[in-house]
Design a binder for these strands. Structure first.
Lengths: 248, 248
DNA sequence: AGGGCTCGCTTGTTTGTACAAGTTCCCCTA
DNA sequence: TAGGGGAACTTGTACAAACAAGCGAGCCCT
């Protein structure tokens, strides 16, 4: 059962993507949308809040909402999982474990993951047949067993861990910067030493806030970029009725 | 007049930062918070939604909300202005125009900015006395005049344009990747040619969706990183393959 | 001791109402 | 013609009331 506001959001999103509401144009007012869908205004507000969170529309008090763009920023699942992102965009992709071993946790790792022993995995991932990403992932001890059971060429670690252990990656913290390729990076990614790489360091946790893994992912320059839409409007969302809500 | 839910959010945020609610612990229930603040449950939901958007707390149906972290990750809200970001973090910073000239817009620029002539500005910015950022900004014709009136060592272009022309940068689209330093980049940033730079390309618009500028900002590696916190619910970031949209 | 089940608690969704605050645009006036 | 005033419209905030859905703890039975 999908929530009402999600269905309304889907429909609006489709209309925007189809060009019914061109970029720069105004969206119908909340009351109009409410009447059209036979829903309360609060429900419509939740729907447009979703679109605002995706960066598709912007709003300010007093004026009609405007369409900002057609490209939908993607979900957390796609940011977290290389496989899900690649699949959603129709790319051919693969993965291969290069090295895998247990070792004692460093001080920082022990603090972040809350355990003394960790499983370190070096994984090379490819897009359209080209190696583009080198992952150095460190798993907490309590998931190490499940990770070790995965095949070396596992396509989607995220999905495999969910299927085999019911593990869900719920929250993530990401740090993005640029680094020069080291000797190992260069050899595996097929670039020269010292050439630029886009680095994404992340730590993910479960729903309960329990740390699962921390990782250092390096993308070959030019292969991938991160995109984001933002607005200054502090509270583009929110809603009204009964129970408000909203994430921005 | 600050909204009620914002005051509640502020208070909760302070409590989290002060350790009243430690990382990993449960937040009071919505009803409890509502009673404590004498507000409706909906208002409290708006407040915690703000914290969720900041990545401070996570939630799932049926279980109490949990505290995810203490660091408020607002860096992407500050993505608009180098000066505002630097000031908020207590850094010494500066800026200097290296070159500035009007020229005809390229095809891509004309499409993005909606005008035939543009103002291109090359600006070097420093942090703690070190040059860290090289901005190649292209302004739309209608703001070119206001930009040209700014002093060459203007600290905050964003604030200066607001003060002088009432201009507000409301929405932004950003693409983040890594590139090798070119000859000019290397000389001005004081690094070797080919060394890695963190690149942020952006296009910003006003409240009405009118394009203001498009820019190619390059950070010296190690000087700055972008950070994001997000949950499986919704997030503003997406990966993009290749250079599909920002070719010059 | 272990497993299953129920019940209470908590968050999620939805509707309704009311007022506040900001925008847009038209009309009237100087 | 330029500017001011104001009315209509639109989004933002806040309240109250339900019900649905998921979680967790404790109870009971085997």
């Amino acid at each position: 059962m999908v929530a009402r506001y999600e269905r309304i959001a889907d429909e609006l999103r489709k209309e925007i993507l189809a060009g019914v509401h061109p970029v720069g144009s105004q969206l119908p007012s909340e009351s109009e949308l409410a009447e059209r869908h036979g829903a309360a205004r609060g429900t419509v507000r939740q729907a447009v809040a979703v679109l605002a969170a995706e960066g598709l529309v912007g709003s300010r008090q007093g004026a009609r909402r405007i369409v900002l763009g057609r490209v939908r920023s993607q979900s957390f699942a796609e940011l977290h999982s290389f496989a899900q992102w690649a699949r959603a965009n129709g790319y051919r992709f693969g993965g291969q474990v290069i090295e895998q071993r247990r070792r004692p946790a460093s001080g920082a790792e022990a603090a972040r993951l809350g355990c003394e022993e960790v499983l370190e995995v070096l994984r090379l991932r490819s897009l359209e047949g080209e190696p583009v990403l080198l992952e150095r992932t460190v798993y907490a001890e309590w998931v190490a067993g499940a990770v070790e059971k995965l095949p070396a060429d596992c396509e989607s670690v995220t999905e495999a861990l969910y299927a085999s252990a019911g593990l869900v990656f719920a929250y993530g913290e990401h740090l993005i910067d640029a680094v020069a390729a080291g000797a190992v990076d260069a050899r595996l990614l097929g670039v020269r030493r010292g050439s630029p790489l886009l680095r994404q360091r992340r730590t993910t946790t479960t729903h309960e806030g329990r740390p699962v893994e921390t990782s250092d992912d390096r993308y070959r320059a030019g292969s991938v970029a991160f995109s984001i839409r933002n607005s200054i409007g502090a509270n583009p969302l929110a809603r009204q009725a009964g129970d408000l809500r909203f994430e921005r």
